[in-house]
């Protein structure tokens, strides 16, 4: 690279191989990396914050529909996934620890374990999504053959009991307009439940996307660890990866109670 050949500002030969040309020393480089990752996580908080805002507002508008729709999620699967992610946070933390003390094999083992747990989470999530597809609970007309249908099970002869009877009156009235000073929406029960599923898919989908990116990052870290790139003097990539992974876990720790547990009528998941 042409930019790097200049001699006057080169680091002395004693400098660490991983020291980039524009930093004075490893300490400064590590500090910059850590601060950068924390600021990135702040932007992530703001990003998810917009969706949490939508969730809070719409839950307060549509508490009954949200509770009923939330009951259709599989709490058992959500619970298993929560445990899986907490375990993956432990293995990630251990990977960081072993990188600090410089045990190459243990870093690799822990990173692979973290990846496996992350993949388990995604597989369970995929089953949950497929279940929603089967039950026609994917909002809107993303799959034209299976548009959202809150009453799909009822139409198959099963009994659904959650909905209050009064909603039959406003049923199938999607053209309802806001009335009164408070602009309280006046939509049918089923379509308000559809809103819950929209938010559920948006939030868990973006969370899952972060998991996928995280696993990609873990693959890179594992290869770097395998090639013995890390040492007690230089392990900040593992540390930064750990910060990101913990953040993604924490988002799920918020999502699980908000989406699965809040207002649930029974732990069986409703059906």
């Amino acid at each position: 690279m042409a930019e790097a050949v200049h001699t006057t500002m080169e680091h002395p030969a004693s400098a660490h191989a991983a020291l980039q040309h524009h930093f004075e020393n490893m300490e400064q480089q590590r500090e910059a990396g850590t601060l950068g990752m924390w600021i990135f996580l702040v932007t992530e908080i703001m990003f998810f914050g917009g969706m949490f805002m939508a969730y809070i507002l719409y839950r307060s508008y549509n508490a009954d529909a949200f509770a009923a729709a939330s009951n259709r999620l599989n709490v058992t699967m959500g619970f298993i996934n929560t445990i899986v992610l907490i375990c993956s946070s432990l293995t990630m933390a251990l990977a960081v620890y072993y990188s600090q003390v410089g045990k190459r094999k243990m870093i690799v083992v822990m990173l692979i374990l973290t990846m496996m747990l992350g993949t388990t989470f995604l597989v369970v999530k995929a089953f949950e999504y497929y279940d929603k597809y089967e039950k026609s609970e994917i909002p809107g007309r993303l799959f034209p053959s299976r548009p959202f249908n809150w009453y799909a099970e009822e139409e198959h002869g099963k009994q659904v009991t959650q909905e209050p009877a009064r909603d039959a009156a406003t049923e199938r009235n999607p053209q309802a307009v806001p009335t009164g000073q408070e602009q309280k929406p006046d939509a049918s029960f089923a379509s308000r439940a559809e809103m819950f599923f929209f938010i559920y898919f948006a939030m868990t989908g973006i969370h899952a996307l972060h998991m996928v990116i995280g696993i990609g990052m873990l693959i890179v870290l594992t290869i770097m660890a395998w090639r013995d790139r890390f040492s007690p003097e230089y392990h900040s990539p593992v540390e930064l990866g750990g910060l990101y992974w913990h953040f993604v876990d924490i988002v799920w720790i918020f999502l699980f109670p908000l989406l699965y547990l809040l207002g649930a009528h029974g732990i069986s998941g409703g059906h």
Binding site: F47, G50, M51, N62, I138, P174, D186, E194, M195, F198
Partner: peptide, 30 residues
């Protein structure tokens, strides 16, 4: 600030993909 407008635009985009409006009063949105 920027992440907030990013997620807002993302929601509008999802609205067009799912073909269901998160900001649509017809389904309890605002």
């Amino acid at each position: 600030g920027t992440p907030v407008v990013a997620v807002t635009i993302l929601l509008v985009g999802l609205e067009r993909v799912f073909r269901v409006g998160i900001f649509d009063p017809a389904i309890g949105g605002d």
